[in-house]
């Protein structure tokens, strides 16, 4: 096991970099971070659209979200891989394909988090903002969304955890993220599949468990703050 780590740790962390493309755990994290970073504004817009008073805004977005949520991520990856190039006429590499799939998929889930957050804020907040003279969008931007994002912070961290795990599906389209690298390693070593995949599993677990605990801590921390306020 030590020997395995000793030989392959760099490959595991960054893939063939700097002699080839960046891969491994670094690529997994970059994908997850970029995925959530791009998905967040999109999810925000979708979430707002989901509760829009205008049907023409609400319907197309709701349909898209329901379709994505009713589909496994693997399906979205396949669409992005096989269908997107025929649409754009350009062959995209695995990285951008996977990122596109992740962004679309996560945006749909984030949108539902945001929607729940908006609906969790009493309509009195919107009414008081509107009665001061703020437009609907200003009320959203200045009054509702800052509260939503704060309340939803733990859910956002949990979504990030999900995204990290989702990147492993990049394996299917030959993306050299950490699962792919582990498989490559296993093929080279041949005799130690249990050890290789145990290390891979541990890596995911430490990352995701750590973040989940952080989300839990965040949730309690935010709760305590509001409780303290309410009883002050």
């Amino acid at each position: 096991m030590i020997e395995l780590i000793d030989t392959y740790w760099l490959y595991f962390l960054v893939g063939q970099y700097p002699h080839g493309p960046l891969g491994g755990l670094a690529l997994t994290l970059i994908l997850a971070v970029l995925g959530l970073l791009f998905a967040f504004p999109l999810g925000l817009v979708f979430g707002i659209a989901r509760v829009s008073p205008w049907r023409s805004v609400r319907w197309p977005v709701s349909t898209l979200i329901q379709v994505v949520r009713g589909t496994p991520l693997l399906m979205v990856v396949f669409w992005a891989y096989f269908f997107l190039p025929s649409l754009t006429g350009q062959n995209t590499n695995q990285f951008w394909t996977m990122l596109t799939a992740l962004v679309v998929f996560d945006a749909a889930y984030l949108a539902e988090i945001i929607r729940a957050g908006i609906q969790g804020i009493g309509k009195g907040q919107t009414e008081s903002a509107r009665s001061l003279g703020f437009s609907y969008l200003d009320a959203m931007r200045l009054v509702i969304l800052p509260q939503v994002v704060r309340n939803m912070l733990p859910s956002l961290v949990n979504q990030f955890v999900a995204t990290i795990k989702e990147t492993s599906l990049g394996y299917i389209i030959g993306l050299t993220e950490v699962s792919f690298i582990a498989t490559q390693t296993n093929t080279q070593v041949l005799t130690k599949p249990a050890e290789v995949y145990l290390l891979l599993g541990l890596t995911y677990f430490i990352l995701c468990f750590g973040l989940s605990r952080f989300a839990f801590w965040l949730e309690r921390h935010l709760q305590q703050r509001t409780m303290a306020k309410a009883h002050a």
Partner: peptide
């Protein structure tokens, strides 16, 4: 609306 002050039963301050 900005010319009409409105006070609600539930205060509705921005928390």
């Amino acid at each position: 609306r900005s010319h009409i002050g409105f006070v609600f039963q539930q205060f509705n301050l921005f928390p």
